[in-house]
Amino acid sequence: MAKSISPRAVLGLLLALALLALPPVALSLGEPFYIGLASRMLVFALAAMSLDLILGYGGLVCFGHAAFLGVGAYVVGILGHHAAEQTLLFGILPGTTSGWVTWPLAMLCAGFMAFLIGLVSVRTQGLYFIMITLAFAQMAYFFFVTLKGYGGDDGLSLGQRSTFSDLVSLRDKSTFYYVTLTMAVLVGGGLIKVTRSRFGMVLRGIKENERRMLHIGIPTFRYKVAAFTLAGAVAGLAGALLANQANFVSPAMMHWTRSGELIVMVILGGMGSLLGPAAGAVVFLTLEEVLSAYTEHWQIILGPLLILVVYFARQGLYGMLPRRRADR
């Protein structure tokens, strides 16, 4: 075994250092704004990775992923709202701002919704699947628009961020950043493990040749539903983080263009690589930040740019990285 350090390892090490050093560096430069931006990037990196699990590995082009994000966010928002108002949800449940309760609940709710949607939609193929996931996300979107008690169209402000213990306060930008980073690394790492497990191999096999999977005896339906559920749950967690990051939840989070943007992040970074889509999220938000500083009409640049990326750089950023020999 060669002991030389691979370019990938160097890259990874530098990245880890940069991620850890970001808050103190930003503070010392007098630019705390960047800590918030970086947290937002990490949240979307997590969301993009969850989408990549089904899109990049399972070949399920979900055009409604933002709905799971939104549901996760609303769990935090609605429970926080009841906590602030001292009222009961459904007349029985008290509100809470405890992250120990709301974050897992966000995952549970989004996962359960994904499970139900998955049951119906993974039966369909290709374009039908794209459209049915879009339709379900629209249903969720309109559902929250009509929830006037929680602000309807205008959304809901978070009175305070989720609480964990007296030692860890998410109100502090740097703390929130590190918590988000921890979640992204743990869950993202977990997803990488999953894609290499037997379950992950089944997903890849379904994307490669679903008919063959059936004929070696694998009932693909249940694995697709399971993957959809898992991806929804992780997106729900990202949603809970996003609600905290923005101190705000609204139906706009679930707008179908948000789902489109999540797909863009995945493609931009390179499908089926998890780290690629995470980088794709960072690049997308950077692009948004840079372009919108330059002109308020930044989407007039983003649109054509997107077409060019799809046309020329289908492999995404990950495809441009130096490859490990074993990847072959």
């Binding site: 082009v61 009409h297 989407q299 007039i300 799809v310």
Partner: peptide
């Protein structure tokens, strides 16, 4: 894009939507 897969088509035409919406706004 006729011979590309649906995902590519969805993304490219999604880019067009962004473009036209912004064009109209301008």
């Amino acid at each position: 894009f006729y011979r590309r897969d649906h995902l590519d088509q969805v993304l490219a035409t999604f880019g067009m939507i962004l473009f036209f919406n912004e064009l109209v706004r301008m």
